[in-house]
Design a protein around this nucleic acid. Sequence first.
DNA 1: TTACTTGCAAAAACTTTGCAGGCGC
DNA 2: GCGCCTGCAAAGTTTTTGCAAGTAA
Lengths: 136, 136
Amino acid sequence: MLDSICSAGFSHTRSRRAVVEALCATPSGATPAKLRARGRAIHTPLGTVTVYRTLELLESLGLARRIHGEDGCTAWAPVSLAHGHHVICRGCGRAAEFEGCDLEPLLRRVSARTGFRVSEHWLELFGLCPKCIQGK
Amino acid sequence: MLDSICSAGFSHTRSRRAVVEALCATPSGATPAKLRARGRAIHTPLGTVTVYRTLELLESLGLARRIHGEDGCTAWAPVSLAHGHHVICRGCGRAAEFEGCDLEPLLRRVSARTGFRVSEHWLELFGLCPKCIQGK
DNA sequence: TTACTTGCAAAAACTTTGCAGGCGC
DNA sequence: GCGCCTGCAAAGTTTTTGCAAGTAA
């Protein structure tokens, strides 16, 4: 992921590496505060501000994305798939990515009904992950 | 909507009416701060706290819901349909509700692929509303 | 060297909590 | 009158901004 940052014209720095690694270490999503805590294992002086700014940068490059839970939307997760969505576990909060959503028929129906021209969408699923299912 | 609150066992108060009317006046969604501003036209001493608490109440009754935009998720909108989703205009920020989403095939596929047992979902569309399309 | 980055500190914005007084029923 | 409800004030969180020092290239 750092490579993508560099080839986009941004510097390769320890701080960025720390944030990127922390993010990739938690594909299930993590808040800026947690990312900072994790990132400090790699680059100790890592500051909160840098985490925010790096996330912003990653988002603009399409490499990270917010995860929206119904309680809030402060968690971030790395984006690995071209057009992925997340499914979030109600039990432990982990998130998994999945590919493909095939919403075309729906989009056409909504356009016809509301008059909106729909260009993007955003889908998130909630449920229980395999571990939490077993645990019950 | 106030009726629903009352029949659920909560009091009919001016403050609640103010929040409910402000909310219904902005089906496109509004932040707590904006709802308070609008609500003050109805009940002047309306406080921020009451707006938050009323929204919480409405949410628990299934009458209001957060709208999650990619920039944040501080806006709230009334829920009028049984199982509605929102389509949000990138131009003016308005939201419209639509019904039905037929995600069953997708849910099955995701369950099979990730092992998650999916129980809820959450979908939001983005695009341009009829007015904004014309305006361009 | 030169411009981009960083991290601290402080400010700002947003949300929640405590509590005395007010209001619905 | 009783108990829920409200609004102010204050505290707690989260996020953004300003700026001098640091670092990649």
